[in-house]
Design a protein around this nucleic acid. Structure first.
Length: 166
DNA sequence: AGTTCGGACCGTT
DNA sequence: AACGGTCCGAACT
């Protein structure tokens, strides 16, 4: 367990890697950045981390990342992994509701469970859980804080709480 | 148009 | 057994 830091204008993100790829990404903590990096990462991890860093900075700048590191989602339950994969299929600038995702993973009526799974998403930002809104275009929740959700959606030119219009 | 309330739904701890 | 990043309809303001 050796998180690597990703310094950005918005604080220091932390990235965890397994032998399969990026396994976890954390928003900057309000508190202190401990910054005790121990052990030199393998060259594979270093390469992945460069990709992660580039992707995170791109997203924060309002652009779409050109490439991502391999994502290791194996830690989740089958249901969670299905949800997380469904999230990855939502195009930038598009949104789906929790109920939409539920149907898309073959579990209609599991909207609340989808909400739980989104909250358990280990790689927010790159696995775009912020593109999931509540029914009727309402904002819904976000574990990283609703400010982040609003901001990310704004970058993608999505405006929540809009019921009219196709 | 908007808000609140109540019950139903389903995976996780 | 209890809790969620929900949903829907009904009954209000």
């Amino acid at each position: 367990m050796d998180p690597l830091p990703i310094p950005t204008p918005d604080g220091v993100f932390l990235a965890w890697y397994s032998d399969r790829g990026l396994s976890r990404l954390e928003f900057p903590r309000s508190g202190r950045p401990p910054n005790r990096s121990w052990g030199k990462p393998s060259s594979a991890v270093a390469a992945w981390h460069r990709l992660t860093t580039r992707a995170v900075k791109a997203v924060l700048a309002g652009r779409e990342p050109t490439s991502l590191p391999p994502l290791d989602l194996a830690a989740g339950s089958p249901f969670q992994q299905a949800v997380w994969r469904a999230l990855c299929r939502i195009a930038p600038g598009a949104t789906q509701s929790y109920g939409d995702i539920a149907r898309s993973v073959g579990a209609p009526g599991a909207a609340r469970a989808v909400g739980q799974a989104c909250g358990a998403n280990p790689i927010p930002l790159l696995v775009p859980c912020h593109r999931v809104l509540a029914a009727g275009g309402k904002l819904g929740g976000f574990s990283g804080g609703l400010d982040w959700k609003r901001r990310l959606l704004a970058h993608e030119a999505v405006w929540p709480t809009r019921e009219t219009e196709p």
